[in-house]
Amino acid sequence: MIPKSSKPLAQASVSPTPDQPVISVRGLRRDFRRKRVLEGVDLQVAEGSVYALLGRNGVGKSTLSRCLLGLLPYDQGDVRILGRCPWKERRELMHDVAFALETPNVPPSMPVGRLLDLNRRLRSSFDEAGCTERLETWEVDRKRRFGSLSRGQQTRLCLQIALSQKPQLLILDDPTIGLDPLARREVYSDLVEALASSRLTILLTSHDTLAIESLATHVGLLQDGQLTVDEPLEALKERFRRLRSCGPRGEWPAPTPPPQPIYAETRSGWGCEWITGGYAANLNLPPSLEVDELSLEEIFAALHAPGDAPQIAQPTLTAAHVA
């Protein structure tokens, strides 16, 4: 006999119809007092992708994650998670959407055993075995208070709890903030393991560009309340290059026609350097021009180059440079 109290809250599982994105956001706007944080965000995340949301601190990444989770209402726009509205249908979505926020929202005085009990009662599909195993590996007693765990253990336990409900969508808001390199690696290993064993869609915000390069399929950049980059990681890295040309002033061999947009131009006594976001392998660039790949971190920096909007693209490469 099943005691009534253990009846899970969420029973109905929502499944995405084929071709329907797991996350679909149109014209999302959210203000805080007079400050407009999100100004018309459009975002589609397809099933099975790992979408990394980048952006400087305070740009609204957490606000966006919270809107997607139904933890925060929005002022305008349309948000669909697995075809449902997260704000109005949060209960229905609870079963299929899991999350871990930058600061674990667990009272520090709560014993970890009680945390697991709570989750078992809240979620019908909660599989406690993974969490128990984890605690055993760490030799952490179920009576230990959550606050006494190390920062890395707290994060990994929260992640494990999130994964233990076998969600379709996992939203992680800066999961590795404040973790040492080893703890960070362990968190990523947990994610790799989760991706290998289930069809999971992940949206994560992070500043750890190296990890994003290893795990993400898509990248979005939140800038001034909008997504200024929203494309597959591969495509982004393919189109960004540093072009370098050495020579006395005015005699640099310049790319013709200049691959647009140019995000930065640096001139020095050595020559000239451009960062382009319009590179393609079939461009006919002069062989004397040095072409360097950029890491995601460098691309991130280039996109935030001072004094520019994303469409700066000043065509500074003119015939004068070639002559």
């Binding site: 790799v192 991706l195 290998a196 399929t217």
Partner: peptide, 14 residues
């Protein structure tokens, strides 16, 4: 295996 290599390199199994 895919899983093993992905785990070792910490890259997306896909």
């Amino acid at each position: 295996s895919v899983r093993e290599l992905a785990r070792q390199l910490t890259v997306n199994p896909a």
